[in-house]
Computed example of a mutant assay.
Amino acid sequence: MNKHHFIFSVPLFLLIPTLSHSAVVYNKDGNIVDLYGKLVAKEIYKENSDHTRKEAGFGSIGFKGQTQISNKLTGFGQWEYRAYTNAAEDEAQTTETRLGFAGIKYQGIGSVDYGYNNGILYDVGSLTDMAPSWSAMTWTGSYNKNFMNSRSEGVLTFRSNDFFGLSDNLSLGIQLQGKNETSNIYTSNGKGIGYSLGYEIIDGLKMIGAYSKSDRTTEQREDGKGRNAESWAIGAKYDANSLYLASLYSETRNTTRTGSSGDAGFANKTRNIELLAQYIFKSGLRPSIGWFHTRGYDLTPVGAFDGGDADLANYIELGVSYNFNPNFRVYIDYYINLLDEDSQYVKQVGGINGNDNMTALNMSYYF
């Protein structure tokens, strides 16, 4: 890890993937700018009747900057942008801003930032978002921008990673989100607030919990499922002695999209269980196995599906990655779908990630 001194308002474990590859491009008079990015060649194969192949490569670039305002006060900012390679040159290209925020940090108190940043529930969701490919695809990844389960727009975030200087083992986060009403109900939200609290029990073992509550927009409330969208989660990770273990349990209300169909709607309630285990060999080999399950309740009737309860996602992730060096990695990751194909929900709506077994092949270069 290059620079422990370069801490933003997200927990340290969220910064590890980028910090280990970032490069200082400017460092003068208390001003530091780091550049980072990655180039990804990726293919996804679906085991359906057509044996569909999907190009899923992309390039990402970003920077982090900080400026020393006084002995204890630091200003900072981060921006990250991604462009996908799944369209021909004469077609519309898919691009997105993934992060964009700025803030200030005062030593001994904490940091405050505003912009497009990770939602407070991702403090827990990030624990199991470590699989080579198939993770963060349900309650934290089915859609971005709205609410505070994944990357979220218009959020004001306060964090104290040492609980106001009282304990290095205790961290606190508070997040406010402004109203974001778009033409798409799946990327809209009303005003909201969220909290997270983490505690490192011993070196390498950490527990964290989070909660958020948001107003729903007028259009979202037309489904008759209430005025509020809520989520809570609790999780733990062990990261030591070449072993990584993580687990979480979460519940959401009116925040999780219920499938791939355009009229699928939001689940009135979901219960989510995620388990992940990895081992890091000295050679750079890192096998991974995980189980991810999302159960939806009071689902919207669609076609022959009369509504009610059903599994939205249920799969095993089985993969292995290999790091040739800190800048180049390859992996293969297999998605074993466990959804019941005879379920009327699966037939009419389709699971959040579809109904097929899938294989992801990847080569990545980091800088």
Rank of each mutant, 00 (worst) to 15 (best):
Y195P: 04
Y199Q: 03
I208Q: 08
R221Q: 15
D239A: 15
S183C: 02
K225I: 00
L197N: 04
W232N: 07
A233Y: 01
L172A: 02
Q220H: 13
L197D: 04
R221H: 06
M207P: 00
L205I: 11
K191E: 11
S167T: 07
Y238G: 00
S196N: 14
E219T: 12
E200R: 09
A210M: 10
Q177S: 15
S171A: 14
G173D: 03
S188K: 01
K213G: 07
Y211I: 13
D215K: 12
K213F: 02
D162T: 15
N180L: 10
I174W: 08
D223W: 09
Q177E: 15
K179E: 14
D168W: 05
G209P: 07
Y199G: 02
D223L: 11
N180W: 06
Y186R: 08
L172G: 00
I185E: 07
G226I: 00
I201E: 01
S183V: 10
Y199L: 05
Y199E: 01
G198S: 13
S167M: 09
K237R: 12
N180H: 15
S214G: 13
E230W: 03
W232G: 04
G235T: 00
T187A: 10
F164I: 04
N189M: 04
E219S: 12
T182C: 06
I202P: 07
G209M: 10
G192H: 11
K237Y: 06
E181N: 14
N228Q: 13
Q175D: 08
G178Y: 00
K237W: 00
S196C: 07
R216W: 07
S183K: 13
D168F: 05
L205V: 13
S183L: 12
Y238C: 02
F163R: 01
G192N: 13
Y199S: 04
D215R: 04
L170P: 02
N189T: 15
K191W: 05
L205M: 10
D203F: 04
D168E: 14
N180A: 13
N161V: 03
S196Y: 02
G198D: 05
S231L: 06
R227D: 15
K179Q: 13
G194C: 11
G192D: 07
G165Q: 03
G235K: 00
I185G: 02
G226C: 03
I185T: 12
G194E: 09
G198M: 07
K179R: 14
S167L: 07
G190F: 01
E181Y: 01
Q175I: 09
I202H: 08
R227I: 07
Y211N: 12
S196E: 03
N189D: 14
K191R: 12
E181T: 10
K225T: 04
K225N: 12
L170H: 03
I202D: 12
S196H: 06
L176H: 10
F163M: 11
S188Y: 01
L197P: 04
A233M: 09
L197C: 06
G198L: 06
S183W: 03
R227T: 12
F163K: 01
N169Q: 15
